[in-house]
Every structure is written in structure tokens, then in C-alpha cells.
């Protein structure tokens, strides 16, 4: 026991002050690419038109490099509703509708000491019945349609539906978007989104930034 305490003291404070402070890191290709090119750019998901990039479609593959480069900015987060009543406390339920696994792990990373989601009044819950927000990851798969509808129906209002990652938002390169069966309150772009981007999206959805 003593060893653990000593270790923690030795390590010091590692937690970010984001969102009041600056994010300490951001994975370059989790940011929306930017370029100043008119004409054809090779994009396997048709996310680039002239110099505009649809961040909800972008799968962070880097095929557009070197014409386009990572913007190194937190991408534009589309939010159609803001729930200020959840600004003090918010319980999140992760729902995997058909991921490669990466988006799930990036959401779960919010629990690690660098992010310490609890300091913002955020926590994960094991059941949608106790959840204020559902974080849906992955493409829409046939077998998960009913469980997804059931999970959202079982949540009490107010409830927020997050589409986390390009697969959930647009279907990415793997399949269909979850928007075919549920309305998306918040879209968190990236393949997968960086944990700081997910945190920014959560804070935006409850009116804290």
C-alpha cells in the first residue's frame, strides 16, 4: 500500500486543465486535414471537395497527404442541442454498434489520470437507464439496431445521443451511419476522435464551452 502512495506522490499532478486550459496533446491525423488545393484530391470516402473537408466523413487515413495536412486544431463539433441541466453531472453510456474497437477505447481513455473525467462531473454508467448521454460508436449493424433503439428508449429525459467517430456519423469506409435510425444530437469527428476532442464535444453539449 505504501508503495502505491509513494509512487503517486512522486508522479505529481498529471491531469490536464482542459477545457479551461489548453489541451496538452492532439493526435495530428485526428484533426481535420486542411489544404489550399483546388482540383482533384484522392479521398477514399469522398470527404474532400475543393478545399473543404467534411470532418464527419474523414477517416484520418492521410491519403490526401501531402496536398492536405492535419490542421492540428480541435475539429468542428456539430451540436444540435445543448443541455445545460447536465452541466454539473453527466453519466455516459458507451454503446458499440459496430466498431473496430478504437473509438470505444478512446472514450474509455477519459477515465485515465491525464483526463480524469470525474473532475468535470462525468462518469460512466453500466446501464442506459442511469445514463444522461449515450455515446454510440461504429457503423450501424443489423444485429445492433434493436439493442440501440431499446437502449435509447430506456434512457430518461433529458438525453443526448452522441455519434462518436466517422463510422457512427457517416458510415466511414465500413458501412452505414447510425443516423439511419436515430437522430444525432452531437457529432464527434475523427477515426477515432482524440480523447480531447471527445471531451470538448461533451463540454459543448452541456453548454460549458
Amino acid at each position: 500500500m505504501k508503495a502505491w502512495f509513494l509512487r503517486s506522490f512522486k508522479k505529481g499532478i498529471v491531469t490536464s486543465s482542459f477545457p479551461s486550459g489548453k489541451n496538452e496533446s492532439l493526435s495530428p491525423w485526428a484533426t481535420t486535414p486542411a489544404g489550399d488545393i483546388s482540383g482533384e484530391v484522392n479521398c477514399p470516402v469522398d470527404a474532400i471537395h475543393n478545399d473543404k473537408v467534411d470532418s464527419g466523413k474523414c477517416i484520418s487515413c492521410g491519403i490526401c497527404f501531402p496536398q492536405f495536412k492535419p490542421s492540428l486544431q480541435i475539429p468542428q463539433i456539430t451540436t444540435t442541442r445543448v443541455e445545460k441541466s447536465l452541466s454539473k453531472s453527466m453519466k455516459l453510456y458507451i454503446f458499440d454498434s459496430g466498431t473496430c474497437g478504437a473509438c470505444n477505447l478512446e472514450i474509455m481513455a477519459l477515465n485515465s489520470p491525464q483526463y480524469d473525467m470525474n473532475r468535470l462531473g462525468l462518469s460512466f454508467t453500466n446501464t442506459p437507464r442511469q445514463a444522461d448521454a449515450i455515446m454510440v460508436t461504429g457503423v450501424l449493424t443489423d444485429g445492433m439496431i434493436d439493442p440501440l433503439k431499446a437502449a435509447i428508449d430506456s434512457m430518461a429525459s433529458p438525453k443526448i445521443v452522441f455519434a462518436v467517430g466517422a463510422c457512427a456519423i457517416s458510415g466511414g469506409i465500413m458501412g452505414k451511419s447510425i443516423s439511419e435510425i436515430v437522430g444525432l444530437d452531437v457529432q464527434v469527428p475523427g477515426c477515432p476522435p482524440d480523447p480531447f476532442v471527445i471531451m470538448a464535444a461533451i463540454e459543448k453539449a452541456r453548454g460549458r464551452i
Partner: peptide, 21 residues
Amino acid sequence: LLREELLRITGQTFGHRYFFG
């Protein structure tokens, strides 16, 4: 904490935390 440090190094060095692309 260590895993997150590793992912950040990976992201900074390779451009992507999971080596995509």
C-alpha cells in the same frame, strides 16, 4: 496513465495513435 503516455507518443511520432495510414 502509462498507456495514455504511449498513445500520445505514438500519435506525435506516427501521426495517429493507432498507426492508421
